[in-house]
Structures are given as structure tokens and as C-alpha cells.
């Protein structure tokens, strides 16, 4: 039984898991959908009332009948590396690859349908609230007057992107940034703006959930620091216990969303409350493991190597 990892070749975070699978002697195939067709080859057939399919890349072959699990890490767009790429070729290749994979009986981390829905930040906030997290008041709007009123009501407000930075060259970043009451909000009419009450924080929390296993790390923040991803403070990530209430909320969130893997971001305020900021269904974990020593890659490998859903008791680290 073989693990399939869908990711780009340069993804060294995936390497951390590949190394663990090698240590455990678990067969695996690594495929970047961008290499299909071309470097990679697939074939699926429905004949005599039965289904089967095969994938091969770099001399490694995978049968759908022997598929143990699929890890959707950082895959490229199907056919992106083709000699003559096109939107049509991408669509055709996506049909072939994912149509075949969906036909197999396997476990997903994370299933693309679940992942697609889980990426939507407004939905994340709704699920987070239902799961029992503290969620800062938030608005996403294309009405400048609503944005203005929100800032007037809550005072200290940050703006953040819902989908990430815009693509293009040179690469851009969109750090979470404070906006003041005198800001010109006319641009809100030209694109949805996500505004959220600023949480003065004493630390950033990154919690990685893999199945029922939770790993939390904490990094002290500097006074007035807004986005923990940007700006060097000299503070590092350290392991931190998961409060029981948070663990229960995380398990509820994962159960509702159907995610096998997720990376949660929280802001810890002066009273020690963890405010839910977002949940990245494919969030990075390598930087946390490298700094804290938490065995996250090994836990991902363990999950992928299982032959059926685990019945393990929830644990926190």
C-alpha cells in the first residue's frame, strides 16, 4: 500500500515527511500535477464492470488498488509544465488525475473539496465561533460606509487579505495592518475588504492539528506588533500546552470541516485568551518543528501510513 504525495519538487517541508516515511519503510510516490502530462503518466480504465488506474513518475509506479492515502501538500496546477500549457489542458488533466483519484478508496489529507471550502475566511470565522473559539468582531464588505462605521465602532481595526497576496512579479506581501479612522475607504467599493478588531497581543500561537494530535507553539510578541509573520523581534517559537477548552474547540472545528490537517493562528491577549484569527488547511509546519523540536512531520507520516481511520484518544502536546 502506497502513500501519494502531491507537491512541487522544491517543497522541502514535504521532504521532512518523505524522510520519515522512508524511515518507517512506507512506500510512497511523489507527484507534482504540473508534471502531468510529460514527466508523469497516468491511465485509468473502466472495463468489465471494474475500475483501475495507474500513475508513474520518475520510475515510481502507483496502482489505485494499492493507494493507501493522499497528501495534498503544495501541488502545482495540472499540466503547468507541459510543452504547450493552456487553461483547457489544465482542465482536461485535472479531470483525468482527480477523477481517477476520487474513484479510488483512500484517505485524504485534505480532501480537495474540504480544502476548498476551508480556505474561505468568513466561513472559518463562522465555524470557529460555533466551535467555541473567541473570535474578534469582523466584517468583510464592499460598502465604504460600512467599513467606516466598523472602524468608528471598534477603534483599533486591522485590514487583512482573505485570499493572500496578489500574484505577479515582483512577489508581493499583504501583512495584516492597522487602519485608522481617517483612512480613505473609497477603495472598499473596488474590492472586498476584510476588517477585524485589533487584538493587542502578548504572543502569537500556532497550533497544528493532525487527526487527533495537537501541537501548539508560542512566540512572544513585541508591544504593538500586528502581524507576527513579518518583522524580526528576536523571539522564537517555543512549545506550549494546549488549554483543554481550546483542544475541545479544535477537535470540534476539525470534525465539522472534515480536515485531517490544519494550522490554526491565534493571538494571545494580556489575559491569556487565545483569539481565533484563521485556520490554514495547508499551513506550513516546518518552521515550527525546526524551532521547537515538536515531531510534526513524523505525526503526518504516521497519519498517512495508517491503513484506516485511527481510533486514537485525543492527545495534546
Amino acid at each position: 500500500m502506497t502513500v501519494l504525495i502531491l507537491t512541487a519538487e522544491q517543497d522541502v517541508t514535504a521532504d521532512m515527511v518523505v524522510a520519515k516515511l522512508h524511515e518507517r519503510g512506507v512506500p510512497m510516490v511523489r507527484l507534482d500535477p504540473a508534471d502531468l502530462p510529460g514527466k508523469a503518466v497516468l491511465s485509468a480504465d473502466y472495463a468489465h464492470g471494474d475500475f483501475d488506474g495507474y500513475l508513474s513518475v520518475n520510475g515510481h509506479v502507483l496502482s489505485m488498488g494499492g493507494l493507501r492515502s493522499v497528501w495534498v501538500r503544495r501541488p502545482g496546477e495540472p499540466a503547468a509544465h507541459a510543452a504547450e500549457p493552456s487553461a483547457w489542458l489544465t482542465a482536461e488533466t485535472r479531470q483525468a488525475l482527480f477523477g481517477m483519484l476520487y474513484s479510488a478508496s483512500t484517505r485524504w489529507m485534505n480532501h480537495p473539496r474540504r480544502a476548498e471550502q476551508a480556505r474561505h475566511k468568513p466561513w472559518q470565522l463562522r465555524v470557529a465561533h460555533s466551535s467555541g473559539f473567541a473570535v474578534p468582531p469582523t466584517v468583510i464588505t464592499t460598502a465604504p460606509r460600512v467599513a467606516q462605521q466598523f472602524v468608528q465602532e471598534y477603534g483599533d481595526v486591522v485590514v487583512k487579505s482573505a485570499s493572500g497576496p496578489p500574484p505577479g512579479e515582483p512577489p508581493a506581501a499583504l501583512p495584516t495592518t492597522l487602519v485608522g479612522p481617517d483612512t480613505d475607504f473609497s477603495g472598499v467599493a473596488a474590492g472586498p475588504a476584510l476588517l477585524q478588531r485589533y487584538i493587542p497581543k502578548r504572543a502569537d500561537i500556532r497550533l497544528t492539528g493532525i487527526g487527533t494530535r495537537l501541537f501548539a507553539a508560542r512566540k512572544a510578541a513585541e508591544p504593538g506588533q500586528v502581524d507576527g509573520r513579518f518583522g524580526e523581534t528576536g523571539n522564537g517559537w517555543e512549545p506550549t500546552p494546549v488549554p483543554h477548552r481550546i483542544a475541545r474547540a479544535v477537535h470540534d472545528y476539525l470534525a465539522f470541516t472534515g480536515l485531517a490537517y490544519a494550522a490554526f493562528d491565534f493571538a494571545e491577549d494580556a489575559e491569556g485568551i487565545w483569539w481565533f484569527l484563521e485556520c490554514n488547511q495547508g499551513g506550513q509546519f516546518g518552521f515550527v518543528e525546526l524551532e521547537t523540536g515538536q515531531p510534526i512531520a513524523d505525526e503526518v507520516a504516521v497519519w498517512l501510513a495508517q491503513r484506516r481511520p485511527g481510533l486514537r484518544i485525543p492527545e495534546e502536546h
Binding site: 485590514v159 487583512k160 496578489p166 512577489p171 508581493a172 506581501a173 499583504l174 477603495g187 473596488a190 475588504a193
Partner: peptide, 11 residues
């Protein structure tokens, strides 16, 4: 310009 892009910066 969309409001959020006012806060973009080179990565």
C-alpha cells in the same frame, strides 16, 4: 484601487 491592495508591499 481595491482597498486591501493599499497595504501591499514587496515581499
Amino acid at each position: 484601487r481595491p482597498f486591501t491592495l493599499n497595504y501591499a508591499q514587496p515581499s
